[in-house]
Design a binder for these strands. Sequence first.
DNA 1: CAACTGAATGAATAACCATTCATTTTTGTG
DNA 2: CACAAAAATGAATGGTTATTCATTCAGTTG
Lengths: 216, 216
Amino acid sequence: MEAVKAEINKIPRSLSKQARRKQLIEATIKCIAEKGLSGTTMADVTQLAGLSLGIVNLHFQSKEKLLIETLSYISDEYTSGLTKIFNDKNLNTEQKILAHINFDFSRKIIDRNKLAVWFAFWGETKSRPTYLSICASYINEIANNLTALFALLKQEGNYTKVDPELVCTCYTALSDGLWLDLLMTPKGLKPAQAQLVAMHYLATQFPNHLKTRTGI
Amino acid sequence: MEAVKAEINKIPRSLSKQARRKQLIEATIKCIAEKGLSGTTMADVTQLAGLSLGIVNLHFQSKEKLLIETLSYISDEYTSGLTKIFNDKNLNTEQKILAHINFDFSRKIIDRNKLAVWFAFWGETKSRPTYLSICASYINEIANNLTALFALLKQEGNYTKVDPELVCTCYTALSDGLWLDLLMTPKGLKPAQAQLVAMHYLATQFPNHLKTRTGI
DNA sequence: CAACTGAATGAATAACCATTCATTTTTGTG
DNA sequence: CACAAAAATGAATGGTTATTCATTCAGTTG
């Protein structure tokens, strides 16, 4: 009891509002991963954060708003990472595409807790338009950027038969599906293998630029 | 009021146990699609089925069992359809693969209500091992069958560089991702287009057997 | 150090919801 | 038609959980 109290007290009360919100959002991510979206209660979240029951309503007004902020949090993390790559002037087209794939399968992104959160919300988009609208805004932007990169590589490499939009749709669906695999069967597919699968597809479109080793 | 009562009364009370269960499961599918897994209540399900509140516990003992039976129901529908194709002695290898893809994107399977149910449960697999075990059993069987088909086509068509297991992993992830697309952005990707995307990938592996038109 | 401010607490409240079961309705059978 | 068995009903129950807010606490300022 004393030990617990001591540990809790390590967290200063004067954390800025922003930091306290982040602390709660990260507890929410863990909670959704462990108990599911429907099984996540305010008591769970606040206990995991080492704070008191009423704190979520103080900082987020309601549970629903906390959930929305949590989805926005991981969406922003993903989008901003990709935007940075897309705008990096030191990378050429091929390097940007490679960086994009590396990012899609990096530790930060394919963390199983975060994957659980993605799919928890995606599973509810049909019934909750708010969740959908949060996702829709970034999906379009990323697709446009990625399509543009594929179009450039097509030009630069004389891949006359490549359809950039089709490749973008296919790659995006493929990586979503691989994410699902990583979430559901962690004993099966490993992150590095998943990335190779994605590379394998892109190598069929841009064989002179993106090569994969044989086997997975 | 009279009209409602009349309509309800159309459903005979003497429906066999099996049929009543099916009626409730189908109401559950609609409900999960409309309100999400967390938002689905017993009152919702039974009202949608035009029956009384207590009926679920009569036929399924608990809400949790109803949900599990609902997942099993759509899993069985999917698995049995694919098994039938795989065991069809009138189809050659190429035709079986084509039939598999056609089935994956058939109306029956990519019904948005059912897609919503798939993803609702998948989003909770990390926290509910029961859901995972229901899915795990059929996933393996289908993967083995499909890999075997790809291995056969590789042999028959002399595709020396094809890795059947890799192609199976890639195709499966791709179709899962396309399903997600169909669920989340129904205004974007259409079922027929999604199928063409899947075909486009397989055409890169078996170009002499599976061709796609240009464009999506 | 005393007064003040805003952050944090958690007991109390009110709403929601799965489950139970005494009662009613329907069906099939002799 | 009567009667037993089976199926269905829905009011009542009890457990769970989001939200509220009076109170406590920590940090700051003059």
